[in-house]
């Protein structure tokens, strides 16, 4: 397996691990021997959260599997920016078939490995939120219910970014997209619709479900590594800001992702066999406004201020905090 040694640059954030930690506690990304499964030179936008999330997740799987890994990719930004012939950025065996079938294709890879008695090689499938919660949902649910030995990773940037920012079933309430324009009554995506795929995955009773954020590298890598300790269907849903579609500063990708977690809008949880087993507590809850105001897709909520919308979104964050007990219980 060829791989490229990379130099490590301290960036002043938590995102690439902390060299001051004991070696065993350092992130995969901080290691000199990280695989760089998704190599540099690809065509992702500046500040792309999905490119970060994919490299974090895949490098962690590579370490966990001793580089015995096959990846199946749904159509989408990740596939397009990484693969144009002859510039593939993938340092791993990688298969792209269609937009809506990555979970089934991965099931097929797993079945072939089973038929050949190859227990050493592991399979992951990956796609964006559109490929996962919408067009590939049937195949994903099938892969879950059959408990096929696949880790599916969803990089959720909350809309169809590759086609130019259109609404998906994962687009948050009141967000602007090109098909939920900021015009008319209640501008942006309507309230009270959409899917929560981690909970749907849990309802299948599969061995392991987790949510993760590119803002918390240690947590993300730990969950991916843990997922590889299980056999059967596993699902990790990673929140990945998209500067293009969210109209946020590319330099703010990690900051925005962190505020999603700290506001309670994107809770970090783990579940086994359909039951929540752990959650990452919030040290200090930040108002959802701090998260929303960094993103142009929510600009219409502030000019003029739409108190009703802001309260409704705050209520969603509060409900998440309550459901998963993300804050310390007050005495």
């Amino acid at each position: 397996m060829p791989y490229q040694r990379v130099k490590f640059y301290q960036t002043g954030t938590f995102t690439v691990g902390n060299r001051l930690l004991d070696e065993s506690n350092r992130t995969v990304q901080a290691g000199m021997d990280r695989t760089n499964s998704l190599n540099s030179g690809h065509r992702a936008c500046q500040g792309c959260g999905e490119a970060l999330g994919a490299r974090y997740a895949l490098d962690a799987v590579m370490r966990a599997t001793h580089q015995q890994m096959v990846a199946v990719n749904a159509t989408g930004c990740l596939e397009v920016f990484s693969s144009p012939y002859p510039e593939s950025a993938w340092q791993i065996p990688w298969l792209h078939s269609l937009f809506g079938n990555a979970p089934a294709v991965a099931s097929g890879v797993a079945a072939a490995l089973r038929a050949k008695g190859r227990k050493d090689v592991r399979v992951i499938a990956q796609g964006g939120d559109g490929a996962t919660v919408d067009i590939g949902f049937g195949c994903l649910s099938g892969m879950f219910e059959r408990n096929d030995d696949v880790l599916y990773v969803c990089y959720d940037n909350e809309a169809y970014m590759n086609t130019g920012v259109q609404r998906s079933g994962s687009t948050p309430p009141r967000a602007w997209t090109n098909t939920t324009q900021a015009v008319g009554v209640d501008p942006g995506n309507p309230m009270g619709i959409g899917k929560n795929l981690p909970r749907i995955a849990m309802a299948h009773g599969i061995p392991y479900v987790a949510t993760a954020s590119v803002a918390d590298l240690h947590d993300l890598e730990a969950k991916v590594t843990k997922a590889m300790n299980f056999r059967g269907a596993r699902y990790i849903h990673i929140h990945v800001p998209c500067p293009l579609g969210w109209k946020s500063d590319p330099a703010h990708t990690i900051k925005v992702a962190r505020l999603a977690v700290e506001s309670g809008l994107f809770p970090l949880i783990e579940a086994e066999g359909g039951e929540v087993t752990d959650r990452t507590p919030i040290r200090k809850q930040v108002p959802v406004e701090q998260y929303l105001e960094l993103q142009g897709r929510f600009k219409h909520l502030f000019h003029p201020r739409d108190e009703r919308a802001l309260e409704a979104i705050q209520a969603i964050a509060d409900a998440n905090i309550h459901r998963y007990q993300l804050l310390p219980v007050k005495a």
């Binding site: 089934a104 097929g108 890879v109 079945a111 072939a112 490995l113 038929a115 049937g138 195949c139 219910e145």
Partner: peptide
């Protein structure tokens, strides 16, 4: 050691075979 998968649709059926065939299996 043949694997028989009961899948959720015909689209899923052929997609499974796409993955399995790319992994070198007769499908």
């Amino acid at each position: 050691n043949c694997q028989f998968l009961n899948v959720e649709s015909e689209f899923g059926a052929l997609s499974v075979l796409i993955g399995a065939s790319a992994m070198g299996a007769r499908t």
